[in-house]
């Protein structure tokens, strides 16, 4: 799970999709999700997959990378697909396609939306505490993942990692995670002090709501998906 990589692509990218606002992209995702809910034959996925792949091209995300990420939902949907395969092959495949296309739509969104915009958007739907909690999760994730990487490197350098030794690895990993926990709780205490000193009473950000040309394109794409699925 490469949150760090996704974050980098979202922030450094400069495609049409990167330029469109979080709102229009979110609308696109909702459209795709509605399309997925409505879709119930393999044919329905033609416009869905098509438009998502075109989206990848527009967003300059390599299809290979997208497929790599789409493997998770494909794997997890297998269990459900097994049950549906008993009905028919296509019914099983539909389940897998639903999981994969939904994940692709969200990935497309997340790959092209820098997190300040993302959180500003979420702020409209969810309570402040939750959004602030998510934001702190995000910041702390990056601080801790850097530390975890160093810890794991030093475990490896000291000969604590064997590709085949599951139990051996787990024992050493537990040590590293333990250290991480202790540091993480110290970090939370430090941030508590910082918030007190800086007078925290809820994070505020500004969400850009003006729509541009790229936004209309994104919204149009979303509507097209629904129409195509319904027609087919």
């Amino acid at each position: 799970m490469d949150l760090a990589l996704i974050d980098l692509m979202a922030n450094k990218g400069d495609s049409v999709l990167h330029q469109s606002s979080a709102i229009s992209k979110f609308f696109f995702v909702i459209c795709v999700l509605i399309g997925i809910i409505l879709a119930d034959s393999l044919l329905d996925f033609l416009p869905l997959v098509g438009i998502l792949l075109v989206g990848c091209l527009f967003a300059q995300i390599s299809i290979q990378k997208m497929i790599h990420y789409a493997l998770y939902p494909a794997f997890f949907s297998l269990l459900f697909a097994f049950i549906r395969f008993s009905v028919s092959l296509s019914a099983g495949l539909v389940v897998i396609f639903k999981a994969v296309t939904a994940a692709m739509a969200l990935l497309l969104f997340i790959f092209t939306t820098p997190y300040p915009e993302l959180f500003a958007l979420i702020n409209r739907f969810l309570p402040q505490i939750l959004v602030d909690g998510m934001f702190f999760t995000y910041r702390i994730f990056f601080i801790l993942i850097a530390e975890m990487r160093n810890l794991l490197t030093s475990v490896r350098l000291k000969g604590g990692y064997r590709p085949l030794g599951l139990l051996f690895n787990i024992k050493n990993l537990a040590g590293a995670i333990g250290v991480l926990f202790i540091h993480a709780f110290d970090l939370s205490e430090k941030m508590h002090q910082v918030l007190t000193i800086r007078g925290y009473n809820g994070l505020k950000t500004d969400l850009q709501t003006k729509l541009g040309n790229s936004d209309y394109l994104t919204i149009l794409a979303g509507l097209t998906v629904i129409i195509l699925v319904v027609i087919i």
């Binding site: 799970m1 949150l3 505490i129 602030d132 909690g133 998510m134 934001f135 702190f136 999760t137 995000y138 910041r139 702390i140 994730f141 801790l144 993942i145 975890m148 794991l152 990692y161 064997r162 590709p163 085949l164 030794g165 599951l166 690895n169 787990i170 990993l173 995670i177 991480l180 926990f181 993480a184 709780f185 970090l187 939370s188 941030m191 508590h192 918030l195 007190t196 925290y200 009473n201």
Partner: peptide
């Protein structure tokens, strides 16, 4: 909240991180 929000962040971040650690093969 000044105490609990960072704590919430730490707890969720740790869950996310431990989920991304490989255990070997």
């Amino acid at each position: 909240l000044r105490k609990k929000i960072p704590y919430l962040g730490v707890v969720s971040a740790i869950m996310l991180i431990t989920m991304s650690i490989p255990l070997g093969i």
